[in-house]
């Protein structure tokens, strides 16, 4: 009996090894060794022929072998299933180097992206964003800014005129005037927008973008201007940037200044971009001229204020390394798509 069991076990091990991970052959092995016609079933039937003393031990031996076979078959079935999945996965592999289905990526114009970044910095500092008309009258664009008719400083602002007492604003400063006309101090504002000058060459477009900041209250000084400017440019360019003021003339500020930031290309050492000076001029600044306050009915003996301005296009060009101004208005998709959002 035990010999017969040993033979069955040996036959089973050989068969199951041979079946491997093939699910059909594993099934055949199961039927052969556990089915109704299996040698184990035949042995069970012979149990009756054994003596009462031998029977329990023989029955136990048969059952043990049956369990062992069952377990081996289960393992073989699992292995077969895993093998089948593996095969399926291998069969379904794709070429991952094929181009994927990419969604389109649009872009924001670099000038607008820069404008937005600057607006955000000022808003975080508590400034309101103000806008005004692009078609202006002489009063708001010139006279209220201490530029009376026939003032020679009007030469610097080649103006596009329209019918009537109207023109295309040459700077965003009229928005300062309109804001001061409509609101009493304290005022803390910036005005970004399109401006126009009758000038068209390699370094000038007839339409460009400015942003000006204005603060008016009691006790505002040039030291506040310096401190704010420092904060704004450090936020925009990083803590390493330095700012400085130089005396300059603009009719609407007194004292007036131009301001520079340390060259971001050479870090102030001097290079081609900054013409070896280590500084890049960004725009005009100064204390609001008393004549401007008088034009909008604010008492210059009670209030003081500072203002400064900048050209957004120029800053966008420096920021993105754009070397040709015309690219900003050509709207070539190959240019625009380099500034994805």
């Amino acid at each position: 009996m035990l010999d017969a069991l040993r033979t069955i076990e040996e036959e089973f091990r050989a068969a199951i090894d041979e079946a491997g991970a093939d699910p059909e052959r594993v099934e055949a092995v199961r039927v052969r060794f556990l089915g109704r016609k299996s040698p184990l079933t035949a042995l069970m039937k012979q149990l009756g022929k054994l003596s009462a003393e031998e029977r329990p031990a023989a029955g136990q031996a048969i059952n043990q072998l049956k369990k062992s076979i069952q377990q081996s078959i289960e393992e073989a079935v699992e292995k077969a299933a895993a093998g089948a999945l593996e095969q399926e996965l291998q069969d379904s592999s794709v070429d991952v180097t094929l181009p994927p289905r990419s969604p389109w990526r649009g872009s924001q114009h670099p000038v607008h992206a820069t404008r937005r970044e600057l607006e955000r910095i000022f808003r975080d500092l508590g400034y309101t964003i103000e806008t005004g008309p692009e078609v202006e009258d002489d009063f708001h664009n010139f006279q209220a800014l201490n530029l009376p008719p026939e003032h020679p400083a009007r030469d610097a602002q080649d103006t596009f005129y329209l019918e009537g007492d109207r023109l295309l604003r040459t700077h965003t400063s009229p928005v300062q005037i309109r804001t001061m006309e409509s609101r009493r101090p304290p005022i803390r504002m910036v005005c970004p927008g399109r401006v126009y000058r009758r000038d068209h060459d390699a370094t000038h477009l007839p339409m460009f973008h400015q942003l000006e900041a204005l603060v008016v209250d009691k006790g505002i000084s040039m030291a506040h201007l310096k401190g704010t400017m420092d904060r704004v440019w450090k936020t925009f360019y990083g803590e390493q940037v330095k700012t400085r003021l130089r005396p300059a003339y603009f009719p609407f500020v007194e004292p007036g200044a131009e301001y520079d930031i340390s060259c971001q290309v050479c870090g102030g050492e001097g290079c081609r971009v900054c013409k070896q000076t280590g500084w890049i001029e960004l725009g005009g600044a100064g204390m609001v001229h008393p004549a401007v306050f008088e034009a909008v009915g604010i008492d210059p003996d009670v209030y003081s204020g500072w203002a400064f301005g900048l050209g957004i296009d120029r800053i966008a060009m420096m920021r993105h390394g754009i070397d040709d101004l015309r690219l900003l208005v050509e709207n070539d998709v190959r240019f625009l798509s380099q500034f994805p959002t």
């Binding site: 400034y127 304290p186 209250d217 006790g219 310096k226 401190g227 704010t228």
Partner: peptide
Amino acid sequence: IPAMRGEPERLPIGS
């Protein structure tokens, strides 16, 4: 001219 951070208290903050 010194660089002074922050303006007098009464200016509006946040917009």
